[in-house]
């Protein structure tokens, strides 16, 4: 059987398996259709979720830890070996609706953002007025923060911030940064994260021309035409990105979805305030190498990519179906990478 199908046909292929009414397969099907409803990318599809982990993270006790349990509970979410928070305690839905009214606090203006809370060391050592540093890198939709962590050591003197809409994921990144700061004294002081809807509130965080780099890595593809306005790169939103970027600032985008790659390319090419970087500039930029390797999403694409390729040879078809759905895009596209320059 050939594997040259799109995501939706993968679902049909899955159906006969589930008709056998094997319990496990049924579970898979439900998971799968949930996934289709929200029309996003695959996330945890490849892995069978650990039911216990889900219970804990969704239970109401999570946020109001009882006093006597405090010790155990608090420790259990942090890995003993690495001191980092364990991801399975921060499982979240794969998507969040960017169009909905937000119920989290939003700063009134960039002056109202307390950056000293985010970067205590930079702001305590700066001391005197006038030497206050401003955030220069923004990772929009930072997810679990892989890129930020890598960039932090690559540009130790640059302040950078991740913006993420899902509160649990933001919480994870926060814990991760705090843990890294304790285990590596003096390092990771230049990264932080905020929970916000960057499509709505970018001007509330950054002044005109403040940023030098913006990262949009593996954004939600939003395939349906009706949902195209939810895409984080769109002609009108690029106006706002151009506003917060300095002249010469760079937008980095990467995706494993060909359709979205084409869309982003078209948007950026047609926008009068952006122009493409040359190949040489791309190769000279140290951040470009991180795009596909540093993020969790990128690693997943690479990881799954290998597996599918094998499934594509026709060995273990039934086991590989869900995975194949996840990564056919990866195969089809040549990992669209766009780096654009404000001019």
């Amino acid at each position: 059987m050939k594997l040259g199908f799109r995501f939706s046909t993968a679902a049909q292929l899955l159906a006969p398996i589930c008709n056998n009414s094997v319990k496990g397969a049924k579970g898979k099907l439900r998971k799968f259709s949930d996934h289709k409803d929200v029309n996003g990318r695959r996330t945890e599809l490849g892995r069978q979720p650990n039911p216990n982990a889900q219970d804990i993270s969704f239970s109401p006790f999570k946020n109001c830890v009882k006093k006597d349990m405090l010790e155990n509970e608090a420790n259990s979410t942090i890995s003993k070996s690495t001191g980092l928070p364990r991801k399975r305690f921060y499982r979240a839905r794969a998507h969040s609706n960017p169009l909905s009214d937000s119920h989290f606090p939003v700063p009134i203006s960039p002056n109202h953002v307390e950056y000293s809370h985010h970067y205590p060391q930079f702001f305590s050592s700066a001391g005197e007025v006038g030497s206050i540093k401003k955030v220069q890198f923004a990772d929009i939709g930072c997810g679990f923060g892989g890129l930020l962590i890598s960039l932090s050591t690559l540009f130790p003197e640059t302040l950078m911030i991740g913006m993420e809409l899902r509160d649990k994921v933001t919480e994870y990144v926060k814990e991760r940064i705090l843990a890294l700061r304790t285990t590596n004294p003096g390092q990771y002081q230049n990264v932080s994260v905020v929970r916000t809807n960057s499509m709505k509130y970018i001007p509330n965080y950054f002044e005109k021309g403040q940023l030098t780099k913006m990262f949009f890595l593996f954004p939600d593809p939003h395939f349906k035409e009706k949902n195209h306005r939810r895409r984080v790169i769109s002609p009108h939103l690029l106006d706002e990105y151009a506003y917060v970027l300095e002249v010469g600032g760079i937008i980095y985008t990467i995706t494993d979805v060909e359709e979205l790659g084409d869309w982003m390319k078209t948007c950026l090419e047609n926008h009068p305030m952006f122009e493409a970087l040359t190949e040489e500039e791309l190769h000279a930029d140290p951040a470009v190498k991180l795009l596909s390797t540093a993020t969790e999403e990128g690693q997943k694409v690479a990881r799954n990519g290998g597996q599918t390729f094998q499934a594509g040879q026709g060995c273990d078809f039934s086991g590989g179906v869900i995975l194949a759905g996840a990564l056919l895009y990866q195969q089809a596209s040549s990992r669209t990478l766009l780096a654009m320059l404000v001019g």
């Binding site: 001007p203 690029l238 106006d239 706002e240 151009a242 506003y243 305030m273």
Partner: peptide, 10 residues
């Protein structure tokens, strides 16, 4: 289209 934002009054 109008792409150049002069300012945001916040």
């Amino acid at each position: 289209g109008a792409h150049e934002i002069q300012s945001f009054c916040l």
